[in-house]
Write a protein that binds this DNA or RNA. Sequence first.
DNA 1: ACTAAACATGCGCATATACTCATATACTTG
DNA 2: CAAGTATATGAGTATATGCGCATGTTTAGT
Lengths: 120, 120
Amino acid sequence: MSSACLLSRMAKKLPLSDDALEMVARRFAVLAEPMRLRLIQNLFEGEKNVNALVEATGGTQANISRHLQTLTQASVLARRKEGLQVFYSIADPSIYRLCELVCGSLEKQAVRQAEAFGTD
Amino acid sequence: MSSACLLSRMAKKLPLSDDALEMVARRFAVLAEPMRLRLIQNLFEGEKNVNALVEATGGTQANISRHLQTLTQASVLARRKEGLQVFYSIADPSIYRLCELVCGSLEKQAVRQAEAFGTD
DNA sequence: ACTAAACATGCGCATATACTCATATACTTG
DNA sequence: CAAGTATATGAGTATATGCGCATGTTTAGT
């Protein structure tokens, strides 16, 4: 598995290989769905089971289950089975900062646009 | 324009509205394409015109132009026209940390997987 | 004004993926 | 073992989007 080697090029400001770029792109793609972000946001409060997430988000059970699968396969979430229920939790702590960064950036943009229009 | 208000909820650990979630998701989606990441990576070296980016990435001119448009509309890149040429550059400095964070996270994952397999 | 260069864009195709509905699986309890 | 509950998944559909091809637009030079 050469991924570690490939990805470490980033820290050294070296160009990433095609494989590495696809991995990074895929990571961003996993976070590029509003419902998945809503799930992540809910899990910021702590571990929750599927039913709790279904009720909290207002989505259908099937859809939520699929999104949770996507997030888990990407190692963003962790899965813990306890009897009939399955509990999900944030597995990748970098998600916090990632969301903070994007929100901060978007907020700055919004403020600039608001100022440009003289509103607010 | 209430975006600024909505997004600021993030910093206070409050739930984001549907609109805010869609904005964040869209931001991630813009970064979820290998070719766009390659362009961004190339622009880490500094401002470049379209032709230079076409040659550096090996993509077609039409495709590169479209990706640059996507990135510019998302305010990730800035566009500067000078005669016949158009120069693009990184407009959103948060992109650096964003990429670093994801790369670091993926690298950790890869290392763990490598260790689990006993390879490396 | 004509030509060429640099970049952008309309269009069609192919693929990916989010969603819903129905059903399957796993586990607990009586 | 039967029934019920919590979760996962197969199938089908609709939408989005990346790509290539051709063409359009803007600007510089003669």
